[in-house]
Design a protein around this nucleic acid. Sequence first.
DNA 1: GGTCAAATTGAACATCGGTCAACTCAGAAC
DNA 2: GTTCTGAGTTGACCGATGTTCAATTTGACC
Lengths: 208, 208
Amino acid sequence: MSSKREKRRDQLIALGVQLFANKPYDEVVIEDLAAAAGASKGLLYHYFGSKKAFYLACVRMVTNRLVAEIESIDTDDPVGAVETGLHRFLDFLERHGQVYRSLMIGASGGDLGVHELFDETRGVIAAMLLDELGVPPDHALYRSTARAWIGSVEAAALDRLQHGDPDRDAFVSMQARALADRLLHVHRLDPGAASPRAIDAARSALSR
Amino acid sequence: MSSKREKRRDQLIALGVQLFANKPYDEVVIEDLAAAAGASKGLLYHYFGSKKAFYLACVRMVTNRLVAEIESIDTDDPVGAVETGLHRFLDFLERHGQVYRSLMIGASGGDLGVHELFDETRGVIAAMLLDELGVPPDHALYRSTARAWIGSVEAAALDRLQHGDPDRDAFVSMQARALADRLLHVHRLDPGAASPRAIDAARSALSR
DNA sequence: GGTCAAATTGAACATCGGTCAACTCAGAAC
DNA sequence: GTTCTGAGTTGACCGATGTTCAATTTGACC
């Protein structure tokens, strides 16, 4: 249930996302923003308190969308889950790539900066992955592996966005395979940490 | 040979790196910066033209240092080269981690933003890696693989910096192994693209 | 219709990046 | 030795813009 206040907030945020996608942070002037919203400058401060806070709210709107899409994947089949996760990430980038890049690039660091927010998002996704593996979230090797893999997916996806180069299926299969390789390697170092089901899934992903 | 002008420039940059490491971009005021340098505001504009340009110069100073350290690795032994590269990166983060993080986080995007600079740095390192493999730099699968791996190393290293968790040797061996796995997989998809020497090295890295 | 809290405004303020005309001064030119 | 020149340096000033706030409007509820 969204109150009238929340509706207005979301409406302003949606506009902000749109503006910040095309211009970097310090080229977006609050006054223009307010004008575009058909409101006054002061209103934005009433709702958000500061320009930085407003920007953060815009970023959170976008990252939330991504997390929601990944979260809604049903996890009966671990291998399939990873692959659809990758596909959804690519879809997400195709639709919101400009925004994603712009938001990640722009802005500055305060007490809680954009970087922290993106990092938190990666952490949430890593936690979902670890949970899927049946591994406690503080297991050092698996946590490191999850973060490494997520970092690699992000880097390669942005590279792909720029070059258009490895086609979707090749990309997905390469990344899925890389994850399986990494997981099996950690499993060799510390058998028993991950659930057998996850390990079997990794093995089956490699033998294709 | 550094002229007097370049000396002064570097001196100002060194101070900038120090300040930007502790405070985010928009909390560092040019006037304070000038005062700390024992100079006037106008001088900074004489040397750099804008605050953003000054910030970029500071970032470039740091990324150059990293590239130089990686570039100076002798590449007789591919496996050893990768491992020492990883070690140097960890060393670099241990010494300049605060700066690295702060600089990467701070600032906003203009015509040429910080993000572009960091991305360029990753591109340079990826190119060195591809060159080492004897692969043309525009080979899609290998380029994607290189970017993915570099992204994973960066993500995992920052994670390690935060948690202190996987010890150095485990970290290095995991990442080296992950690279070998990825390379061999691409090699299976497109044999003949990479130099046999590199592929042999990857094989030997896996059988340890 | 009255009341009160929330929404909204716009003028005033403060900060800070950027500009510029002037000054200093070391070293080249004569 | 004097003059000239150009770079280094300054600090006062300007304009843009984020932020504050007292005042006004709106709208829901009794």
